[in-house]
């Protein structure tokens, strides 16, 4: 199924700039943005930019991949906790999948995530890379 590029475009604030909601009352940050703080019901918030470094809290190696990602397989997919405590899921790229483990330090990098074949729109966003400098 081909979706209009509007669907991805709407998410640029998150995918390109890691913008998140930080609620006034609880001080909690949610990624992606939300209207209501699920803990307090608070709607007063400010937009913050997430830090670009963190640690892997869990991961897997996808060996049987959806066709859109088949050329990348096997690829590591992880949830990392960023330095502000926010968690997000992304691929871990630029590394041997066997090296990925819980506790590994990663950095967020801007990468191409998927494309609609040779003709469709390109989707960009964040991936993790091992932090080596």
């Amino acid at each position: 199924m081909t979706m209009f590029s509007s669907r991805n475009w709407r998410e640029y604030q998150h995918r390109y700039r890691l913008e998140a909601s930080k609620f006034k009352k609880s001080g909690k940050t949610y990624f992606p943005k939300r209207t209501v703080d699920p803990e307090t019901g608070d709607t007063e918030q400010e937009i913050v930019k997430l830090p670009d470094e963190g640690k892997i809290v869990t991961y897997t190696v996808i060996r049987v991949a959806p066709s859109k990602f088949a050329d990348m397989a096997p690829y590591a997919l992880a949830i990392a906790e960023l330095t502000d405590g926010t968690r997000l899921m992304a691929q871990v790229t630029d590394c041997d999948v066997e090296q990925v483990k819980i506790g590994m330090d990663v950095r967020v990098e801007f990468r191409r995530i998927q494309d609609e074949g040779h003709h469709g729109v390109l989707s960009y966003g964040y991936k993790f890379v091992p932090k080596w400098f």
Binding site: A65, P66, K68, L77, M89
Partner: peptide, 8 residues
């Protein structure tokens, strides 16, 4: 935020 990144 999951499937977009290649999650199954």
């Amino acid at each position: 935020y999951e499937v977009f990144h290649g999650a199954t």
